[in-house]
Design a protein around this nucleic acid. Structure first.
Lengths: 113, 113
DNA sequence: CGCGGTGTATTATGGCACTGAAGCAGTCTG
DNA sequence: CAGACTGCTTCAGTGCCATAATACACCGCG
């Protein structure tokens, strides 16, 4: 029902963001090259570059031309913080309203953990 | 952060679905004509028709040619049920994983209610 | 019947996002 | 310098979305 086909570059972006937050791409580490990640994910190098671009703009990764892209110190924390705020501010209210309309109990779902 | 620009016809679809579930378009009622709703929402009649089309396909709305489109009896319940299932199956797991990663606790979410 | 209200089909057009292919530019290593 | 790696730029193709302008088919009412 819901169109779950997000653009590839956004899926990659989320994938990378999760990896940074979880520390699988540690601060100071070099990210996989666009070509390497593209090959691994079966995507186009340009599409990967577009995903990386998002992080550059936010200053979470730094580019060394001809070398690679590095995770900036503090990136994991800042990323978690900003995503957390964005989630609470923009996504949760809608989700909550949706759950109420559909008769889904938030308390019930959150208790399962 | 999250791209909130969904296609117009999907936004209309969600808007109408919410109205049906909430009973603002009651079962047996006639929906606004494509031209009327288009004018009201500043959209194109064809785009509205495309949104309505979704509900016809699911048998939630019946067309009386030359008259209008009517909400089928039981539509609200069926719609709520199917959306509820889709939500729990497709959206909730991702939301839950996201919350865990971002360190959002159930407690702080439920406190707002 | 005639008129104005419904939804629908057709065709064309412009815009935009996504993806892709090839090549350019910078850096490191030997 | 030569080669192999990096990211980046440019040009192009594809498909979806939204819009528009018509035209058609049906119904209810006077």
């Amino acid at each position: 029902m819901k169109n779950q086909s997000k653009p590839v570059y956004l899926k990659l972006r989320d994938m990378i963001a999760a990896a940074i937050i979880d520390g699988r791409y540690a601060e100071g580490d070099m990210l996989p090259s666009v070509r390497a990640l593209a090959a691994e994910q079966g995507a186009n190098p340009l599409t990967v570059a577009k995903a990386y671009q998002q992080f550059q703009n936010d200053g979470l990764v730094e580019v060394q031309r001809g070398v690679g892209m590095y995770v900036v110190p503090g990136a994991a924390g800042r990323l978690r913080k900003s995503e957390r705020e964005a989630f609470l501010r923009e996504e949760w209210p809608e989700i909550r309203a949706r759950m109420d309309r559909l008769g889904v109990s938030a308390r019930e779902l959150l208790a399962e953990a």
